[in-house]
Design a protein around this nucleic acid. Sequence first.
DNA 1: ACATGTATGATCGTCGACAATAAGACAATA
DNA 2: TATTGTCTTATTGTCGACGATCATACATGT
Lengths: 256, 256
Amino acid sequence: MTTSGPAAPAFISVLRVPRPSTVDLIAAELRAAIQTGALAVGSPIGEVEIASQLGVSRSPLREAAQRLVQEGLLTSTPGRGLRVAEFGIHELQDHYDARVAVECHAIRLIVRRGDPADVAAIENSLAELVQASEGTDARAIGDADLGFHRNLVARAGNTRLERYFATLAVETRIANFSMSDGYVVRRDVSPSYRQIVDALTARDADAAIVALESQMTHAIARLRGESSEHGVDFDTVEEPLTNDPLSLEPISGRDN
Amino acid sequence: MTTSGPAAPAFISVLRVPRPSTVDLIAAELRAAIQTGALAVGSPIGEVEIASQLGVSRSPLREAAQRLVQEGLLTSTPGRGLRVAEFGIHELQDHYDARVAVECHAIRLIVRRGDPADVAAIENSLAELVQASEGTDARAIGDADLGFHRNLVARAGNTRLERYFATLAVETRIANFSMSDGYVVRRDVSPSYRQIVDALTARDADAAIVALESQMTHAIARLRGESSEHGVDFDTVEEPLTNDPLSLEPISGRDN
DNA sequence: ACATGTATGATCGTCGACAATAAGACAATA
DNA sequence: TATTGTCTTATTGTCGACGATCATACATGT
């Protein structure tokens, strides 16, 4: 996760090219496994099992796991090992509050800078979301949804906020898995997305923040099952998303 | 997995007391060492050295170190091991923007709940800060300063924001070490603290946020050496804060 | 003298193995 | 029959050791 984002530095040839460490790769793989649902929430992590599937030993796996523990995606109880973090109702409110904190300030940073390119990029993400929501693939819609918010934070250009959001995005997927039944996404694109982009265009941070907060409030209500708003269509994916019990691709290793 | 096992215990009289894991202790010790200045910024981490000082082997130390890597307090370059993260000018802006993001939303959460006990507790922290700033111990003043902000975030009651701030607090200390000359704190308590508490009492989130942002802006200017405001007294601590090259208390271990 | 190639030394990254702990099964007793 | 104590077993937590990699110092050639 060290060098995420627009990968290749264009012309800086002499500046240190950080080769991704092995723990970086394992940590990214674990995050992806949680995001995909390959590692079910609450399930214990068999260290030898996962390590052998990744083609590495236990030590690098444990080191990478400690990163996820720090993120809050894994919980480590002394004698019983590691488990994928679970979500309760109160955790849900906490999670979305944190998302509001991060994205709200991202909005403020973008407005402060006032670069039209940022708004254009976010507009582009919205277009992708609209296009994805035309289809019926709930997974693709969810990805595009998170992609919009991820791009919003990325455009703020703050490393720390970006890192926070990286884990929050995975947590959102966890919430979508463990809450309610199945994986549910809204079929129609909420108008608040349009409001956010419009407010960014008008450089009205407060309006964008209000729209964002309403979006999060609706998300909480939806996940709690209290679909407060009537007349909206939901799309449900019932399958556990990966029939493979565990599909972890072995670490690519350093190709030399 | 649904409703398996015996019925839920009626009253959980003794709920699980999580004994702190060894990596928890080591990670806390490392954080404290960075916060104290025992581990200078930019200095490499000799693993065998630190491990022997802590009385543990390299494996738990490395696992704990990966947590700090995730936090951003340590950097891990593949062949060269671990180093304490360093701060540049641009990192400074990033850092304080993240702090604004966290604390700003903490203010909003506190105002939203509107519990007078929160404001009272924060008022108490301010009193401690004022009392500390009476003396000449710059370290104590800095601690009280960070304690005020920590309490502000803690009173918001959001686990994630609290965790974010825990690392941001250490980063603030790092910034105080690596920036400018020596360890500098303002001798007089900035009036913005009073403004924050007053705005919280009046449940005026926007005013509190404005005060907070001005505080952060001043902090950045101060660390950059451009003391934009005239007529304020600074107090400097020149000593590297710990003459001991490395004073890491050995891990307390599980007392049996 | 400067640059380059080589040798050396130390440190890191990874692995397998041992000891400690916790969960589950089974039998014994009230 | 329910409870309790013990045993077995699997998994974790920790350690020492080996191979790989990088930094430094030195010698050599232009």
